[in-house]
Design a protein around this nucleic acid. Structure first.
Lengths: 354, 354
DNA sequence: GTTAGCACTCGAAGAAAATGAGTGCTAATA
DNA sequence: TATTAGCACTCATTTTCTTCGAGTGCTAAC
């Protein structure tokens, strides 16, 4: 949408002011606030126009104006366009190196929440496309095997397989060799019926054990689709914004952040999108967030590991700072994990560096 | 504390009524509510006595009475004493069997929250005293080993060990045999300097690899002391009780439930105590809970696995029901895990039954 | 020891009034 | 023609005042 320059300036001024105060903004304020040198009466006329265009609205007669979703959208688009190439990468968050993936993500959410004063969420990376590095079977008792799977990205998963029939130590060893020979370097998706059948053939008398083991491996590596790993922090920040904490959706919001499950919709939706996304009010993919704005950034650690970082706040969120912060974070994450190189990322959380 | 029978009846009536309504209770209400056949004037006299004894209090002149912490304490003690042998074990929660420990505990918290309308927390079992079943070392690359540890309770932990010097496939195998021979059946606490030294001696040229591996194992099995595994649910239930949601500590409360860290104090404190504990207001080991009551039960799954289940609500909580529910749950948990027998409990959460 | 009766207290709820930020419109001005 | 000063009007918010009633403590009678 194109907008007369003066109108644009006034709209921006209104929004900026509202972001700060959270109070409806009157014409007199703008008249003094800007360097436009216009009287409040003139501003009033322009404001009437802006209201007609659906960019601002009066909560009630004789109140100032507040931005509509559409108004915010205009502001954000304009800001994103202007700042495209000059985001503040200097102001990096203090993100100390941590050994463990899980702890790192938790800390990330925490730091981000503390820095922005909004609620944050970080999704653990999904790793479906990750290739198998090796599989280690160990016999636990007569009919049970512990399978440990390590992927190229050094994620370790373990699973106990119940075979329903006895198996000897020797056979476990054979099976181990066989599995590694056949599956090494494959991603879970690539394990198809062909491979399974040839595995069974080669396994000969052990063929009946192949299926449960593969099933267990697949399930272990794929992870729980229903229960997403999401780390949250700063949920209580929403109490800092009366328009959120007093809305009846506050409870739902906190509930969603506690259960995490409901946030998955949001994660999935922005996982596919490149770069930084801004959802304003109704634009949100998730019903409960319709009184909020959400800014998300997706990260990519290579090896098919990717997830998102999200910030949830009131519509009058400091978009500029939030987008800037997330932008910087994205770069920082990239750098850290590029540097980490071969270093481990352990899922069960017990990887150690040195 | 011993109390005149009539006074006790009146106090109980006041508390019962207050638990229901949350409103101060007046003399007339009690006069009709009970079967004591006393006029309101008499009740008033008794109430004046009870107030003098510090069991009830007037929020302001010309208001009814509400129980003090001391009053609640009297009520709870009396109730616990009376019901000691007749808790309602019939009303068992629908706790379907789940494969994975983590999921089971999460679900437990959830079910409990839904059933009681309070906030709940469940601590994952600590397992320091648990004995090692076997250790499996796998060579990941030149200088890195993946150590997988399984304990008697079938908890699986994995950790990546960086040796800082190359090691051959053969040596890993030797080390594997050595470790299992020496450590099998020991608990982590039992691995002392003696054992470590004799291990080093036996390891000969590999002795330098012993220490980092043992350190990693110890750390893996001991788990993070700082970051307790606590599952919570129903935090938003506190919004159902105005006296909590409107108190300024509501934010802190929710924050504590989100961060979990602060709850650890509570967990540790009631971990040592047998049976069911009731903390009323100031009695709570945790500052932020001074406007609440907390009821905890510790569970014991054998093999040194034990943790706690807690319910946090307003002081005017339905103690009778909560204590009953926890009591039943305790029995149920015992039964389930007795039945489970050798079945696995996988920490990385990927144990499967059949 | 119990109870009826009564004056008294004080929070809660409501009504009325005062306040003031902000508007829209009109007529004067550059 | 665009801008502005001026003014009447609106309406949420705040304050003040009033009313209401639940509940008390005390006293005197039973």
């Amino acid at each position: 949408m194109e907008l007369e320059d003066r109108k644009s300036k006034i709209l921006t001024a209104i929004i900026r002011n509202y972001l700060e105060t959270g109070e409806p903004v009157g014409s007199r304020t703008i008249s003094k606030f800007t360097d436009l040198q216009l009287s409040s009466a003139t501003i009033r006329n322009e404001m009437a126009d802006l209201e007609e265009m659906g960019l601002i609205i009066q909560p009630h007669t004789s109140a100032g104006r507040i931005p509509t979703d559409k108004g915010y959208r205009f502001y954000v688009d304009q800001m994103m366009e202007a700042r495209k190439h000059e985001f503040d990468d200097e102001k990096q968050l203090l993100l100390q190196r941590v050994d463990r993936m899980e702890a790192a993500l938790k800390q990330l959410a925490k730091v981000l929440a503390a820095n922005t004063n909004y609620a944050t969420l970080v999704s653990a990376p999904t790793y479906t496309q990750n290739k198998l590095k090796f599989i280690q079977l160990s016999r636990v008792d007569e009919a049970k095997i512990l399978a440990v799977i390590m992927t190229q990205a050094n994620i370790v998963k373990s699973t106990l397989v119940d075979l329903n029939e006895d198996i000897s130590e020797d056979d476990v060893l054979k099976m181990n060799v066989l599995l590694n020979a056949s599956l090494n370097g494959l991603s879970v998706d690539e394990i198809n019926l062909n491979i399974i059948n040839s595995l069974k053939t080669e396994a000969k008398e052990l063929s009946r054990a192949v299926e449960p083991i593969l099933t267990a491996i697949a399930q272990a590596v794929t992870g729980d689709k229903d229960e997403p790993q999401i780390y949250t922090s700063g949920t209580t920040n929403i109490f800092k914004y009366p328009e959120l904490s007093q809305s009846n959706s506050a409870t739902e919001l906190i509930g969603a952040f506690e259960e995490k499950q409901p946030l998955n919709e949001l994660v999935l939706s922005s996982m596919n999108k490149e770069g930084i996304q801004v959802y304003i009010g109704e634009e949100s993919p998730f019903e409960n967030l319709k009184d909020c704005s959400v800014v998300t950034a997706n990260y990519d650690l290579g090896d098919g590991l990717h997830g998102i970082v999200g910030i949830v706040g009131p519509k009058r969120m400091d978009y500029e700072r939030v987008v800037g912060t997330l932008h910087g974070l994205k770069n920082q994450l990239d750098a850290i994990y590029k540097e980490m190189g071969t270093k481990k990322i352990s899922d069960s959380g017990i990887g150690k560096d040195e």
